[in-house]
């Protein structure tokens, strides 16, 4: 464990608390893509069912991410269902899941169910934010709290990059699948980060140019 990874994980934790806070305080899941949230459940379930014991920290985090992502689906689907507008959440997820299944079958460290699922989850995570970003693009604006959620989520994978560089020099390990997918994942946030830093951080509303 190094600081980059720790702060990455903390940023991931923070993003979930920000999202819950947004849903609770506005009593609404407006502006949140149900599809992206459902993809995260698929990501965590397929990655964390390996039951390999690493550490208490690792196990607790895994349980938390599975539990909280399912809980968010419950909030969106049942508790605050009327506040979700499916007509703007129109990204076709099958275009993401299909290729990720294929990539997982082709690129993995061992051709076993657990390892293929692990690779699949890494690839799927890298693109799971697309329905959310697509929705943002369609509406052209977002509540500030929603942008904080996205920024924390983006910072999580961004912080994993210096972590991998650090691990390469200190442990001599490289995980090419995670690194490739992680770079793609972080790259997808670049446009968002640009608007976030130039507008939201300056106290302005998140609005995309028409």
């Amino acid at each position: 464990m190094n600081l980059f990874r720790l702060f990455g994980d903390l940023s991931h934790l923070a993003s979930i608390f920000i999202l819950l806070h947004k849903i609770y305080t506005t009593r609404s899941c407006r502006g949140i893509s149900f599809k992206t949230q459902a993809l995260y459940v698929a990501v965590f379930v397929s990655r964390y069912i390996d039951f390999t014991y690493i550490s208490v920290y690792n196990t607790l985090m895994k349980l938390f991410f599975i539990g909280s992502s399912c809980y968010i689906l419950y909030l969106m689907r049942i508790k605050y269902r009327p506040t979700h507008d499916p007509s703007i959440d129109t990204f076709r997820v099958e275009y993401l899941v299909g290729p990720c299944v294929l990539l997982g079958l082709i690129f993995n460290y061992q051709f076993t169910v657990i390892e293929v699922l692990w690779s699949f989850s890494i690839f799927l995570e890298s693109v799971a934010i697309l329905p959310q970003l697509f929705m943002l693009q369609r509406t052209g604006e977002a509540e500030t709290i929603t942008t904080h959620y996205l920024a924390a989520l983006g910072a999580y994978r961004a912080l994993y990059i210096p972590n991998w560089i650090y691990r390469y020099f200190t442990e001599g390990t490289v995980d090419p699948i995670a690194v490739t997918a992680g770079l793609v994942q972080t790259g997808l946030y670049l446009d968002f980060f640009y608007v976030y830093f130039t507008k939201v951080m300056q106290g302005q509303k998140f609005e995309l140019p028409a």
Binding site: D50, S55, K62, G172, T173, V174, D175
Partner: peptide, 10 residues
């Protein structure tokens, strides 16, 4: 270089 074993990252 080797691949980290056991996927210790989240």
């Amino acid at each position: 270089t080797e691949v980290p074993v056991g996927h210790d990252e989240l």
